[in-house]
């Protein structure tokens, strides 16, 4: 494609996104923070793997010492107590510094959890997509039996909670032990619980993704497939080369929503023992008895993931935009 698509061809279609738009002034600031966040994560992950792979997660040192933050927090709370009732706002500030110090001290462990969160989300959304496309095609173009089967699958999955689905796989079917026996699991591949969580998220998100793709497929003009068939392409080839490339572009906003949902719902893997971000926070909370503070810290992590993903997907949508489509 040698033609540069006019920018803004898709800008009018922001619609209701899963997160929504922040006021513009804040967006620039957040873009900077987003780069910083991902930069730190990538350096941290590489460092822990290349430089100090043998050190236990909890023994790893953060790149930035937490001491100064604690010092400020201590000083502020002394001032706050001295001022009595007037000191309350300063007390809050002291809390903010304490929380930041707690976060910094645990950054290596949180980064490790964040890595699993990212793996869970990316692997599951992509595997889910691989299932969702044929599922959606079956819904729209299939015969009565395939159509009904695909419908039953999506409705059953979408009609029950994700956490219950994870429980079916983990407690009900006890997928842990057999998965643990698979070659590579726990070695080059992630641990058994992570793999089971990926299976669950893949199944779950395939149903939701197929809904977005299905409605995008029905949005493609029927004349497109007719024209494809008229030059001698078979039905599947016509769908593959003519209908899907257009439908998948239509589906990007919905697909972004699903991606963002999955980032957030990946936290439910904690309940089947996966040491991702939320579970790391829970462990840190149990060690320090500072649940609220550490949960506030990871809320910021998730927000950073969600907002950067939304921005990246908007960029991707603009990059893949074609004049006249959308």
């Amino acid at each position: 494609m040698s033609k540069v698509p006019e920018s803004g061809t898709s800008a009018g279609r922001a619609g209701t996104s899963a997160v929504g738009e922040l006021p513009t002034a804040r967006q620039a600031l957040l873009a900077g923070l987003g780069v910083l966040f991902w930069g730190w994560l990538i350096v941290r992950w590489s460092y822990d793997r290349l430089v100090a792979p043998s050190v236990n997660v909890t023994d790893r040192e953060p790149f930035v010492p937490a001491g100064p933050l604690e010092g400020v927090a201590d000083a502020l709370s002394t001032v706050a107590t001295d001022l009595g009732a007037l000191g309350t706002p300063i007390g809050w500030l002291a809390w903010a510094f304490e929380t930041a110090a707690l976060g910094v001290r645990n950054l290596p462990a949180l980064a490790e959890g964040a890595l699993i969160t990212v793996q869970l989300t990316v692997v599951s959304i992509l595997c889910g997509l691989v299932i969702a496309v044929p599922l959606a095609v079956a819904r729209v173009y299939g015969g009565p039996v395939t159509r009904w089967t695909a419908l039953a699958y999506t409705e059953l999955i979408r009609g029950t909670p994700l956490l219950a689905q994870l429980f079916v796989l983990w407690f009900g079917l006890s997928l842990g032990p057999p998965v643990r026996g698979l070659p590579g699991v726990g070695g080059p591949l992630p641990s058994a619980a992570v793999v089971v969580a990926m299976i669950g998220f893949t199944i779950n998100s395939s149903a939701y993704q197929s809904e977005y793709i299905r409605s995008a497929l029905t949005g493609v003009d029927a004349g497109q497939l007719t024209a494809a068939r008229a030059i001698g392409l078979g039905k599947l080839a016509g769908i593959r080369h003519v209908v899907l490339p257009q439908a998948l572009r239509f589906a990007i906003p919905g697909w972004t929503n699903e991606f963002i949902y999955l980032i957030k719902y990946s936290s439910l893997a904690a309940f089947i023992t996966v040491p991702e971000l939320f579970r790391r926070a829970r462990d840190i909370g149990a060690d320090t008895f500072r649940f609220t503070d550490i949960y506030a810290v990871i809320a910021v992590f998730y927000l950073a993931f969600v907002l950067t993903t939304a921005a990246a997907m908007r960029h991707f949508e603009d990059r893949t935009a074609i004049p006249g489509l959308n």
């Binding site: 997160v19 006021p23 963002i260 809320a299």
Partner: peptide, 21 residues
């Protein structure tokens, strides 16, 4: 809209435990 983004961008399990604790 900022509060909205924060609520929509945080996992529900994190919101629940945050409010609980």
């Amino acid at each position: 809209s900022t509060v909205g983004v924060a609520l929509r961008g945080t996992p529900i399990v994190v919101l629940i435990v945050l409010f609980f604790f």
